[in-house]
């Protein structure tokens, strides 16, 4: 292995390699995967001069630390956190020079849940179906980071362009407000139940993960019994399992499923969902589809 690599000093609770994912393979049962807070991932890449398709590290709550084997430029975005280089404070949300042998540490999130670490040249893990994203449902892509593991870095693309506009990320969050287009299976639920969706006080469950944001709160009871034949599940689907607690499907969601989808959250709101820590209050704002008039 060349010295364009880093060694994992502290993997944290869950740190994965992510990029923009492998859309277009859902018909084969392959989840999309990719960075959950996509604007934060894109921004981190821009800060270090990478194309937005380069792979970054996505941390969960506790951050991570890596020792680089080459002089590099890195950036930490997404959930704000203390950043250090060999113990010295460094900037969050800005390019940071990390000399060969130094440890870049992205600490615990002070708000939100997931930070993104970009390195000049990107994390050069082996692509699968055109993407380096770790897919935790089906196990495609690189395994989550583990202490002592080594991952290669790609060749830098050159000096970063000036970043003049900060894209919207999912932060900061006191209450997660999720617009939700009703359907395709809202007819499986009573009107009272749809009112509960609109007015109920939900919270992010600690059982949430990259597959779905699980909720705690009022239970949505079905109007119809029986089973729904398996059908395609979109990113952002609000699926209601038999316990009545809605699950918002995130990037590693199964491609088909048999529980009714009461509504779908437009993708641009999913970055905020990805940054909502367990316990965050959740409010759904259901509306009818524009397409159905």
């Amino acid at each position: 292995m060349t010295d364009r690599a880093f060694c994992v000093v502290r993997a944290g609770a869950l740190t994965t390699v992510q990029d923009l994912g492998r859309a277009g393979h859902a018909h084969l049962g392959v989840p999309r995967a990719g960075a959950l807070d996509e604007p934060a991932h894109r921004y981190a890449n821009r800060l270090v001069g990478n194309p937005e398709t380069s792979a970054t590290l996505e941390t969960t709550l506790t951050g991570c630390a890596v020792r680089v084997r080459t002089d590099t430029v890195a950036a930490v975005t997404g959930a704000p956190c203390p950043v250090t280089v060999d113990g010295r404070p460094a900037a969050w949300g800005a390019p940071v020079r990390v000399p060969a042998g130094a440890v870049l540490d992205a600490g615990p999130a002070t708000a939100g849940l997931r930070s993104y670490l970009a390195f000049a040249g990107g994390v050069d893990a082996e692509p699968v179906l055109g993407s380096r994203a770790a897919d935790l449902l089906s196990g495609l892509g690189p395994a989550p980071l583990s202490d002592g593991g080594v991952l290669p870095l790609g060749t830098p693309y050159g000096p970063p362009a000036t970043v003049d506009a900060v894209p919207r990320s999912g932060l900061p969050l006191k209450e997660l407000v999720l617009p939700c287009v009703l359907g395709p299976r809202d007819d499986w639920f009573t009107d009272a139940c749809l009112r509960t969706l609109a007015t109920g006080r939900f919270r992010v469950s600690s059982a949430s993960n990259r597959i779905g944001l699980r909720t705690e709160g009022p239970s949505l009871e079905r109007r119809k019994d029986g089973e729904l034949p398996s059908e395609g599940m979109p990113l952002g689907a609000l699926q209601v399992p038999p316990n009545g607690l809605p699950v918002l499907f995130l990037n590693d969601h199964p491609t088909t499923g048999g529980y009714p989808v009461v509504g779908a959250v437009p993708e641009r709101f999913l970055a905020a969902a990805a940054q909502a820590a367990p316990g965050t209050s959740v409010r759904f704002v259901p509306r009818r589809s524009r397409a159905s008039g």
Binding site: H27, S230, E231, G232, P234, L235, T256, A291
Partner: peptide, 23 residues
């Protein structure tokens, strides 16, 4: 369209610019 996902009784089309027009 980004995804075309057939299933038991349905086909999901996702990533359409104007789903109402196709519908």
């Amino acid at each position: 369209v980004r995804e075309i996902v057939p299933a038991a009784r349905t086909v999901l089309l996702d990533g359409l610019a104007d789903p109402g027009r196709l519908a």
